[in-house]
Design a protein around this nucleic acid. Sequence first.
DNA 1: CAAGATATCAAACGCTTGTTTGAAAGTAAA
DNA 2: TTTACTTTCAAACAAGCGTTTGATATCTTG
Lengths: 209, 209
Amino acid sequence: MTDQTITACEQTRARLLEAAREVFSQCGFQGATVREICRRADANVAAVNYHFGSKDGLLAEALNFAQLKALQTENATADKCPEKRLRLFVHDFMLMLLDEKSASRQCRMMARELADPTPALDKIVTEAIAPLHEFLGRLVREIVGSKVSETECRRCVISVLGQCSFYYHSEPVLQRLTPELRYDRNEIEAIAGHIADFSLAALLAKRNG
Amino acid sequence: MTDQTITACEQTRARLLEAAREVFSQCGFQGATVREICRRADANVAAVNYHFGSKDGLLAEALNFAQLKALQTENATADKCPEKRLRLFVHDFMLMLLDEKSASRQCRMMARELADPTPALDKIVTEAIAPLHEFLGRLVREIVGSKVSETECRRCVISVLGQCSFYYHSEPVLQRLTPELRYDRNEIEAIAGHIADFSLAALLAKRNG
DNA sequence: CAAGATATCAAACGCTTGTTTGAAAGTAAA
DNA sequence: TTTACTTTCAAACAAGCGTTTGATATCTTG
């Protein structure tokens, strides 16, 4: 019984992490309760503190930026022109944010925290968001050319991310505005297409203007 | 003592409402506590329930969409081409969202609620956000012409609002990304200019494409 | 198997939350 | 001034929170 067998302990840890990602991404850090996480993980209330020290510790371990990083490296190695890579990025990013079926609650969890800071925000920013902005900054730079200032370039990145995030952050509102709206795969891809069109038109205008 | 004299009761109510707008806009509905609101209003904890019935009731009364509506009517009556009116809207909207000195906590309060729904979200949507989307929808329509579909038009509105909101919602993140950032009036106007440029370029491309 | 370490559990702790209470203070009209 | 009503207040309430506890169960190992 040395390796490879999954101990009961590890099972509980894994269930807690999964439940935590679920609840954190749905309710935010403040809104999520340890009791609800433990209920969904079929674990005792004390389990969180036993395995992770505290609710903060659980959040820190539940955070996982692998998927977001993978999205960037895959995109960077794609053998395409920058316009197509931007289109691809927006597509993958929106699927990650909106597709229920995509198992990437990590990303949505992260998005929840952006608005109101938790102890983990610094880690999120340095490990995930800053690299993301730099990645997009390079991509935008490829598109607009060298005449555009760095500040302007950064604002373009924010314009792209702002459009994407809005669909996630304001879902409750958009749902009420157009009740028939469903984020199925077709809808998400249509939205991603719009954001890419919209952004590329603006960026190309900047390059030529 | 019939009119014009401000009773003690009315003074307390007014102080509570002002303090509530302050705290709600800073901490969100969940994060705000009745005790903190009462402390800032120099009132007893029981005052909220006495005057407004509950914390929910206080939120409902504290909400005030006058400023947001005024922004729309002023804009609509501006004797300008739709491009300039969009530019003007973005400018005024960003000032309302970001300028500390602008006394419009109502708008920021509202923005806080969008991400995680409170009992008041329905009221906010029907009374403030839906009209805002319709207003912007008409403005966008004037710019892109009649060839663009209604769905696409709506998505353009979201693209504009998404860019604006991002600076507000993600302030904690943007502050960490560029620590020297300060939302003074110059910076806000520069940002508003960028968003207007970016969006108009995309909209004009849609009209001509 | 027996002993020691590890993991789970029900229960409770201390704290904060929104809300309620009943008495005290303030106000207005007879 | 007296009477009736409104407003404030300190204190307490019940519920929920994250966390701790000490006993119990479950493994691992000699």
